[in-house]
Write a protein that binds this DNA or RNA. Structure first.
Length: 588
RNA sequence: CGGGGCGUGGCGCAGUCUGGCUAGCGCGCCUGCUUUGGGAGCAGGAAGUCGGAGGUUCAAAUCCUCUCGCCCCGACCA
């Protein structure tokens, strides 16, 4: 391809509003153009990379035995009503009504396709002999995100590979899941991404029923806890906190006292007023658990983990209580709750950390007052079986597997594998007959990859000040070929010939035939980040040589022009297969 | 949904507080000449409903009201 024949609008300056590297570079390199918040046009260069990621995903899905199909993006709303997900998705589900003759038809744009595919399977699969089977598609999904952001990382419309497995037993589901898990490792590996499979919020099957594939990146929206020592990795939503010594500190108990804390309703305000530290406080959260109030005690510097609380007490719905409930339960406005002297006898749960807090500061269940010198066992009590791990893991917490220190890092969720169980098959009557003529709901798994996030994740983790650094596998073109003087006939003859030879050898080459100064070409080449740069300039041409430089190398090497096409093609083939040079780039 | 920031030729910005002549600057674009290995120089040129509506005023990019769009932070952590 010739630069002047395609459409690559690069930009020297960063458009206002773009902040994170992937967004800035995708805009500047002419990969995307914003149409509105959360919706982008993929320009020719961006589309080529997107298609490459898509192709890798498709190849690995096919290799894993998954079968491709394509479902519609528009779906009947009734399907979502049957599974209760109209309510579950809320405003995220894009719904609309269209008029057809004199009927009104309610539709929704698919944010994911469990309903559509389960409905399909319920009509055509009815015997154990037809399973296991994994079906997938690569298709645009629509989600009306509360807040689209970070360029292409969170958008209202995105390209997703979604696969669904249908199995007759949990054991068979496990096998399908393992195949997808392994395929995901190959996909992210081939894309040159550093990735981390982490345990995620699990579904109804429990155990290790869900993994997210995370790309560690500063600007990721998720946080993962990772143990370098044993490899344990989990989403913060899920990460367990290992047990540490629960030996209370050997300090004499202080006298219980009430102190005035006017208008100090937050941990920070109380600490400032009483000159204490957050870890000396006990935070008392009043939750509404399936409509009944409960109290949850945490050390002042800890964050509650609602998933853990929900599981510990075994409820479906959990939300912080409304202020009138708090007023009733504690007898005080929000901000002054404490475990001592609650007005109603409600269940009290506590994070394990509470066992080592002595002489704590807590709310007094009274407006503008706190208690000091509060001690477990003397001033309040929590039944032993209500001490649980109820908080988010923090940097340095013990690993639940090996007790080494956990580290926390941000990451981009690029893929998710999930054991669904029978939620959708039961709701949509997708049943099969086993060899004993017994009817069972089909056991399902689902497996998603955000294709756009592969691209954004790669750029987020592979760029420098000058621009993107693509691996060959995802690069819009594999070779960038720059004749420095396009008005010089011998130069252009050589450039055209090399271009044609490379193309014939199956190499994707971009010939920069613009009549611009060398500096402009070099800057743009670095910006769009094509892995291999070939320069045909007066320096080398006189000696029958050209210049070759990998995007991540500092210095070029010279190559004989007459054997160049063959050697370049060979290098590109090596990089496609192993990405060895790309993966070693970090050593520099 | 709460908070903050920003809307001025294609892109990046100044001008707004303190109203005043024909709305400027850099990049890009077009023409010509020179130049030619890391975003060239000179000369000439095209291109702007100052996000939109209403209002105040002799006079509005600038002041007031409403509204739309974009970006960032937070979303009940007592």
């Amino acid at each position: 391809m010739r630069w002047t024949k395609t459409f690559i609008p690069t930009m020297k300056e960063t458009p206002e509003g773009a902040e994170i590297p992937s967004h800035v570079l995708m805009l500047r390199a002419g990969l995307i153009n914003q149409v509105m918040a959360g919706a982008y046009t993929y320009l020719p260069l961006g589309l080529r990379s997107l298609r490459k990621a898509e192709r890798i995903v498709r190849e690995e899905m096919d290799a894993a035995g998954a079968i491709e199909l394509l479902m519609p993006a528009i779906t009947p709303l009734s399907l979502w009503e049957q599974t209760g997900r109209v309510k579950a998705f809320g405003d995220v589900l894009i719904q609309f009504t269209v008029r057809r003759q004199n009927r009104k038809i309610q539709m929704a744009l698919g944010p994911t396709h469990e309903e559509v595919i389960t409905d399909l399977v319920s009509r055509h699969i009815s015997s154990y002999r037809q399973m296991p089977i994994t079906l997938y598609q690569i298709q645009t999904k629509f989600r009306n995100e509360e807040r689209p952001r970070f360029g292409v990382l969170r958008t209202s419309e995105f390209l997703m590979k979604d696969a669904y497995s249908f199995n007759t037993s949990v054991k068979s589901l496990d096998e399908s899941y393992e195949k997808m898990y392994a395929a995901y490792c190959r996909i992210f590996g081939r894309c040159g991404l550093e990735y981390l499979p982490v345990e995620a919020e699990s579904g109804p099957i429990g155990g290790d029923a869900s993994h997210e594939f995370m790309v560690p990146a500063e600007n990721g929206e998720d946080t993962v806890a990772h143990c370098q020592a044993c490899g344990y990795a989990a989403n913060l939503e899920r990460a367990e906190v290992g047990c540490r010594d629960c030996v209370p500190p050997n300090v004499p108990p202080a006298k219980l006292a009430k102190v005035a804390t006017p208008n100090a309703g937050t941990i920070a305000q109380v600490c400032a007023l009483l000159k204490c530290r957050p870890e000396e406080m006990i935070k008392t959260l009043i939750y509404s658990a399936d409509e009944k109030p409960i109290a949850v005690l945490l050390r002042g510097d800890r964050e509650a983990n609602e998933g853990k609380i929900r599981r510990a007490i075994g409820v479906e719905k959990l939300a912080l209580a409304e202020s009138d409930v708090i007023q009733r339960v504690t007898g005080a406005p929000v901000g002054f709750a404490g475990p001592v002297g609650l007005k109603e006898a409600i269940p009290v749960w506590a994070d394990r950390d509470l066992l080592i807090v002595r002489n704590a500061v807590t709310g007094a269940n009274e407006r503008d007052a706190h208690l000091t010198g509060v001690n477990l066992g003397r001033d309040f009590d929590v039944p032993e079986d209500r001490f649980r791990d109820l908080r988010n893991a923090a940097e340095g917490d013990p690993c639940p597997r090996c007790s080494a220190a956990l580290s926390l890092r941000h990451a981009i969720e690029a893929g998710h594998v999930f054991k669904l169980g029978t939620k959708y098959s039961e709701a949509l009557a997708a049943r099969f007959l086993d060899d004993q003529e017994q009817l069972h709901p089909i056991i399902m798994g689902c497996y998603g990859i955000g294709i756009n996030r592969i691209i954004a994740g790669l750029i987020e983790t592979s760029h420098d000040d000058a621009g993107i650094i693509w691996p060959v596998a995802l690069a819009p073109y594999e070779v960038y070929l720059a004749p420095l003087k396009v008005t010089d006939e011998p130069t252009m003859i050589a450039a055209d010939r090399l271009h044609d030879e490379l193309q014939q050898a199956g190499v994707e080459v971009l010939l920069d035939d613009r009549d611009v100064r060398a500096g402009v070409k070099f800057k743009d080449a670095d910006l769009i980040g094509i892995p291999l740069r070939i320069v045909l300039g007066p320096r080398g041409l006189a000696e029958g040589k050209l210049e070759l430089k990998w995007r991540w190398d500092a210095e070029p090497e010279m190559l004989d022009l007459d054997v160049a096409a063959e050697q370049i093609a060979e290098m590109i083939r090596e990089e496609r297969a192993e990405a060895t040079r790309f993966k070693e780039r970090c050593r520099d």
